[in-house]
């Protein structure tokens, strides 16, 4: 199986965008792609360990995702790492601005990554942005 790279930048705090990002990351990772996820802007706060904040729905679809028992985006990101060896990095700038440390983020989140390194990683494959 040919190995390919998928880089996913996630900046939205909307449920629909986070869901789609998690679907691309998890399905990509379990299908043999090297997946790198970069979390920044409004997306990062949901990955704080003790956060109980729910991502708000942007529209009708977001409300339906919850009503119809679609898999939770956080669970899918976790499965991307567990089943597909995806790497999920918090943006180092966002970590600084939010004032969180790596050990305050979900256990499947790796160490903070700078934009330069992400862009270098992203230059070799598909890039998705949510």
């Amino acid at each position: 199986m040919a190995s390919d790279r998928i880089s996913v930048m996630v900046t939205s705090g909307n449920r629909e965008q986070l869901q789609m990002a998690a679907m691309v990351a998890s399905v990509g990772a379990v299908s043999g792609s090297d997946v790198t996820v970069f979390l920044s802007m409004n997306a990062l706060k949901f990955f704080v360990k003790d956060s109980s904040e729910k991502a708000p729905a942007e529209g009708e679809m977001g409300a339906l995702l919850e009503d119809k028992n679609a898999p939770d985006f956080m669970e899918l990101f976790g499965q991307a790492v567990e089943y597909g060896d995806a790497k999920i990095f918090p943006c180092s700038m966002a970590v600084d601005i939010l004032g969180v440390k790596q050990d305050e983020l979900k256990s499947f989140v790796s160490e903070p990554l700078g934009l330069t390194a992400f862009l270098s990683d992203a230059s070799e494959g598909q890039v998705w942005h949510f």
């Binding site: 998890s26 379990v30 679609a70 898999p71 899918l76 089943y83």
Partner: peptide, 13 residues
């Protein structure tokens, strides 16, 4: 009673 990619992930697990 779950949606894509839930069944795929359960299968992989």
């Amino acid at each position: 009673n779950t949606f894509c990619p839930g069944p795929l992930m359960e299968l992989i697990g």
